[in-house]
Design a binder for these strands. Structure first.
Length: 280
DNA sequence: AATGCATGCGCAG
DNA sequence: TGCGCCTGCATTA
C-alpha cells in the first residue's frame, strides 16, 4: 500500500488516535523491544511525514522513524486489542485504540538530528507543499523547484527520476505511471527533454492527486469524464481499489485510445504506459 | 504445500 | 544489475 499518500494519512491517523495521551508500546516480534520499553507510557505529541517516511514524536524520548518498504502495513483497531501475532513489530495501545505495525523496512527510535538528516536526503514532497489559499507565509512549504533543478539537467529517464526519492519524495510506482499518462509523456523520455511547463503541470497534478489520495486513502487518478460511470464501463475489479489509467493494466486497451497498455521492467519495478497516448 | 508477486530501498559488484 | 530484507495474499500444483 505504501506511497506517500499512505504515509501522510498514517501520520494523521496516529495523531487522531493516540495524540496527547500516554500509550503502551510493545514489540511482540522482538526487533523493537528495547525501544518499545523506552516509549512505554510516553505521550505522542507530534507526527510528521516526508515522502514515504513516517515520524511519531514522543517529546524528549525521540522520534519513532517508520518506513514501510514494499510490504509493511499498519493496522488500526478499537480497544480492547486482541493479542498480537508474533509478526507485530510495534504495537501501540491506548484505552480506546491500538495499532499494529508489521513488516516495515525501518522502525527505529531516533533523535532530532537523525531525523533532520533524513529530511536532508529527501527531495520535495508534493504533500508538504503549502496549501493554496491558507494565507501561510510563502516559502514555508515544499515546491517543485529543487526537483526541476535535478530533472532538467539529467539524462536519466523521467520514469526513473520520479521514483528517485532524492529528486522528489513520496511518488511510487502507481503515481509515477499515472501522472506520466495524464500528461502524455513517454516514461523513457530523458529528464532534460521535459519542458518547464510540463514539469510545472506534473508537480501541480501530483499535489492535487496525492492530496486526494490522503483524503480517500487510496489512489484514484482517472478524470471525472473517464470514471466507470461516466464511460459506462465496469469498475476496476482487482484488489488495489482505485481507478487508474495504466497501472497494472498491461495488454488491456487504453481507456482513451484503445492501444494495448505496455509494461516493461525498469530498475526492478514494473512500468506501465500507453504507447498511443504518451509521446516521446 | 509450494510458488509467485507486490504501491520500496540499500547495498555489493 | 541483481540480491536481500521484511510479510501477506493469491495462484498453482
Amino acid at each position: 500500500m505504501p506511497e506517500g499518500h499512505t504515509i501522510h494519512r498514517l501520520a494523521e491517523d496516529h495523531l487522531a488516535r493516540f495524540g496527547g495521551r500516554p500509550v503502551r508500546a510493545r514489540s511482540p516480534q522482538g526487533k523493537f523491544s528495547d525501544s518499545a520499553a523506552l516509549l512505554d507510557g510516553r505521550v505522542l505529541d507530534t507526527v510528521d511525514a516526508h515522502g514515504k517516511h513516517l515520524f511519531l514524536g514522543f517529546g524528549d524520548t525521540g522520534w519513532v522513524h517508520i518506513h514501510l518498504g514494499l510490504f509493511g502495513k499498519v493496522g488500526f483497531g478499537d480497544a480492547p486489542a486482541p493479542p498480537p501475532t508474533d509478526t507485530v513489530r510495534l504495537r501501540l495501545a491506548s484505552d480506546t485504540a491500538y495499532m499494529d505495525l508489521r513488516g516495515p523496512t525501518t522502525c527505529a527510535l531516533i533523535t532530532e538530528p537523525e531525523k533532520r538528516a533524513i529530511h536532508e536526503r529527501l527531495g520535495p514532497d508534493p504533500l508538504r507543499a503549502r496549501p493554496d489559499g491558507t494565507g501561510a507565509p510563502t516559502g514555508t512549504g515544499d515546491d517543485g523547484e529543487r526537483a526541476w533543478a535535478r530533472i532538467s539537467r539529467s539524462r536519466t529517464t523521467v520514469a526513473a527520476l520520479l521514483m528517485d526519492q532524492k529528486v522528489i519524495a513520496g511518488v511510487g510506482n502507481v503515481y509515477r505511471a499515472e501522472v506520466l499518462f495524464r500528461h502524455g509523456i513517454d516514461p523513457y523520455r530523458a529528464g532534460k527533454d521535459l519542458t518547464r511547463s510540463e514539469w510545472d503541470a506534473i508537480w501541480a497534478d501530483l499535489v492535487a492527486l496525492m492530496r486526494e489520495g490522503v483524503r480517500h486513502n487510496r489512489i484514484d487518478t482517472v478524470r471525472p469524464e473517464h470514471t466507470p460511470e461516466a464511460m459506462g464501463r465496469p469498475p476496476r475489479v482487482d484488489d488495489h481499489g482505485g481507478e487508474v489509467y495504466v497501472y497494472r493494466r498491461a495488454r488491456m486497451p487504453c481507456l482513451l485510445c484503445g492501444t494495448g497498455i505496455r509494461t516493461e521492467t525498469l530498475a526492478a519495478r514494473n512500468l506501465f504506459w500507453c504507447p498511443g497516448c504518451q509521446a516521446r
